[in-house]
Design a protein around this nucleic acid. Sequence first.
DNA 1: CCGAATCCCATGAGATACTG
DNA 2: CAGTATCTCATGGGATTCGG
Lengths: 137, 137
Amino acid sequence: MTSQVGRGSSDSPGDVLSNPQCPTGRLLDRIGTKWTSLAVRVLAEASPQEVRFGELQRRMPGISQKMLSVTLHNLTRDGLVTRRVEPSVPPRVHYRLTELGLSLEAALAVVRAWAQEHMPEVDRANELSSRSGPTDS
Amino acid sequence: MTSQVGRGSSDSPGDVLSNPQCPTGRLLDRIGTKWTSLAVRVLAEASPQEVRFGELQRRMPGISQKMLSVTLHNLTRDGLVTRRVEPSVPPRVHYRLTELGLSLEAALAVVRAWAQEHMPEVDRANELSSRSGPTDS
DNA sequence: CCGAATCCCATGAGATACTG
DNA sequence: CAGTATCTCATGGGATTCGG
């Protein structure tokens, strides 16, 4: 979902969503990624407690180690999550939301509330156009 | 971003984000799509005025006809946008946000506000880990 | 226990060309 | 003008496997 112009046009970037003009696009590119929002949610629920890698994986049913790793790495790079390695063997790694991450969670909570409240209507609309669209009557 | 199990396993669905349990995931799958949020934004700015296809395209620099078409189609299917065809030649098609669409815009506005306020910090964090990560000092 | 590396498929999305 | 169809490439993300 990151910039790319297409075939061989090697000059003008032309990307709108991932350019500084539109912070929203760039943000959505990140939280729109499959597991990010769920990870933030789980970490927020535990906050201010830290959560270990394996525990996170258990609380995010279906996620693979790779994707959890990648997701956490991205969140850490973005300053939304802190990573603390406990020097033991085997090593334990703990994650926690930063202040910034918590503030994002607040915004996500709004989105979640909308989803909870309105997704049924969206589903309804989909079913309606499934019927009246193809066949009509 | 929609369900898929992997190689040839043809049985268990296993997808977590696009299942009814997590409306948020399903919503993010939609608004996280490259042009959706911008389209909603532009339509919201014009609301309650309608906006024509070409006008929309002009207000969304960089979008192709195809992607605009697809995006609007999805929004319409989801009940977020209405589509009105003016029976003339050449035909003119007008789009407008529904009430549902407007309510979504409200949620998106919160996300936008967060992005405006905090993306710089995110960028800063990225630059920091670009330097201290690789090299350290 | 944590996660990096590799492989591989399904999908998103741009370019282009064609219809009513 | 609005929209569809086709082709193509870059990316997301799952399975699996190796390393510390």
